[in-house]
């Protein structure tokens, strides 16, 4: 158990060190956090869409649940301290509490959404998750306690990029270990042939639901993290567009490849951000050109999906993983 947790502990130390070193550099911190959140979303969505072969297109809904749960909790406990601890440590502990709460509530929503739809064929999940995202949006917009359409402001900005990347590390570790476990193998089997998997004693529904719950949990955590470094949490951040962005990432990276999801998430987050800065500069500081570019992004995502499916449905990485390649290379070097 201790040895199993060792990588996570090392990662925590590393993230704290990095945060201490680079924490003052606000622009870097913001961008790194944004990238990190998208990586968490992509890697977690890949568990259900890639490894299990189901298709959820409402990941932003679970993100929203996490964001609002975590945000509300932190707002409520903004002034609280654990007396004996230094302020920073106490704040970060409260933050972790909010993140876990956000993840847990999102996971519960995942259970409620997954139970009825995952007993059916994969494409029902697509519709139900899409519907779920819409319902969440409608509920938030109609609830004054959540800030309605204006959004939730004043959530303490406690999440540094170090915290975000610690969770990135956790989700990648989780995905990797899952893939190499009996559970992961069962998920692959479901993706390959559901009838055969069931005939070999795999309780397909239960595995699918668990994969979906896990995926929702991390989406919730990502949302909660997001809520703790952006100034305002509003329903506009969690629309269908956001869900599609994540879907495009994992499809481009290669459905089933954690490495692919990671790489594509980093790239597809930095590219538009870079374009935005570039075009703002080109437009002489006038943001309207950058906004135009931003609008074009969404139809391009759609066309990209179609083109990938028609020409290279396995995406960039297929189902390959970077660490497998490393392992193979080391084996060869030894021989």
């Amino acid at each position: 158990m201790i040895r199993g947790a060792a990588p996570a502990i090392l990662a925590a130390v590393g993230c704290i060190a990095l945060q201490a070193l680079l924490g003052e550099w606000a622009f870097f911190g913001y961008l790194a956090s944004l990238v990190g959140v998208n990586v968490i979303l992509a890697v977690s969505l890949n568990v259900i869409n890639g490894m299990t072969g189901q298709f959820s297109i409402g990941h932003a809904g679970f993100m929203a649940v996490g964001a609002y749960t975590g945000g509300i909790l932190s707002l409520a406990t903004a002034q609280d301290r654990i007396g004996v601890l230094p302020e920073v440590v106490s704040d970060q502990l409260f933050l972790v509490g909010s993140l876990c709460a956000g993840g847990t509530v999102a996971a519960l929503c995942g259970l409620i959404v997954g139970l009825p739809s995952l007993r059916l064929r994969g494409d029902y999940l697509a519709i139900v998750t899409l519907g779920f995202g819409e319902i969440i949006r409608v509920i938030v917009q109609n609830t004054q306690a959540l800030g309605g359409a204006l959004g939730l402001s004043g959530v303490p900005q406690r999440a540094g990029f170090g915290m975000v990347w610690f969770w990135v590390f956790l989700v990648v570790l989780m995905a990797r270990r899952l893939a190499a476990s009996p559970h992961g193998r069962s998920l692959w089997a479901i993706r390959e042939d559901e009838v055969a998997a069931e005939a070999m004693g795999v309780d397909t529904t239960s595995y699918k639901v668990r994969a979906f719950v896990l995926s929702s949990f991390f989406a919730g955590v990502a949302g909660a993290l997001f809520a703790h470094f952006v100034p305002i949490v509003n329903p506009g951040s969690f629309t269908f567009v956001k869900s599609m962005e994540i879907v495009v990432m994992i499809v481009a990276g290669g459905l089933g490849s954690t490495t692919g999801a990671f790489t594509a998430a980093v790239f597809l987050t930095l590219l538009p951000e870079g374009m935005r800065s570039l075009f703002t500069t080109l437009g002489g500081g006038d943001p309207s050109l950058a906004q135009k570019v931003d609008q074009v992004r969404m139809p391009i995502y759609g066309v990209l999906l179609v083109l990938i499916m028609l020409t290279r449905p396995q995406g960039i990485f297929g189902t390959h993983e970077a660490w497998d390649a490393v392992a193979r290379w080391r084996k060869k070097a030894r021989a």
């Binding site: 072969g53 298709f55 297109i57 994969g122 494409d123 697509a126 599609m244 879907v247 499809v251 459905l255 969404m298 139809p299 995502y301 759609g302 066309v303 990209l304 999906l305 179609v306 990938i308 499916m309 028609l310 449905p313």
Partner: peptide
């Protein structure tokens, strides 16, 4: 089947 589903989603989005 997933490939056609993703294509359909892509067209819709585009």
């Amino acid at each position: 089947r997933l490939t056609s589903l993703i294509t359909a989603i892509g067209i819709s989005f585009a």
